[in-house]
């Protein structure tokens, strides 16, 4: 195939940007969390791409760890969101305003 590293990096960069924008833009904590996952995916894609075109295995191994961690993070994060929902009946960011001066 004629597609090179640059194309993969471009996808990865765009994916990262979309995820980042989502984190900033969205108000629903669940969706924000999904956007974080998109950012992680972007980083993973970049790593795998580099690993492939640099001919080194390290990047792939790193991705293995990242996926492991991401799964754990999601589990903890969702647990917190659910627990909070029980108290507040909401998952919108602007309703999380108990903490203030």
């Amino acid at each position: 195939m004629t597609v090179g590293l640059n194309e993969f990096l471009a996808i990865s960069g765009l994916l990262f940007a979309i995820g980042f924008t989502g984190v900033l833009l969205r108000r629903n904590t669940l969706v924000i969390y999904m956007c974080l996952e998109i950012m992680l995916s972007a980083a993973i894609l970049a790593l795998v791409g580099f690993s492939r075109f640099n001919n080194t295995m390290d990047g792939n191994i790193f991705v293995f760890f990242i996926i492991t961690v991401a799964a754990a993070e999601v589990a903890v994060g969702l647990a917190i969101i659910v627990a909070l929902f029980r108290h507040r009946q909401t998952i919108q960011v602007e309703d999380l305003n108990t903490l203030k001066n």
Binding site: I11, R52, V63, F64, I67
Partner: peptide, 21 residues
């Protein structure tokens, strides 16, 4: 993304990605 992994030859990661994510 998993599909892109396949293109990059990282089959195992592609499977992992689908399975876990």
């Amino acid at each position: 993304v998993a599909g892109l992994f396949v293109l990059l030859g990282a089959y195992f990661l592609a499977v992992l990605q689908i399975l876990v994510y």
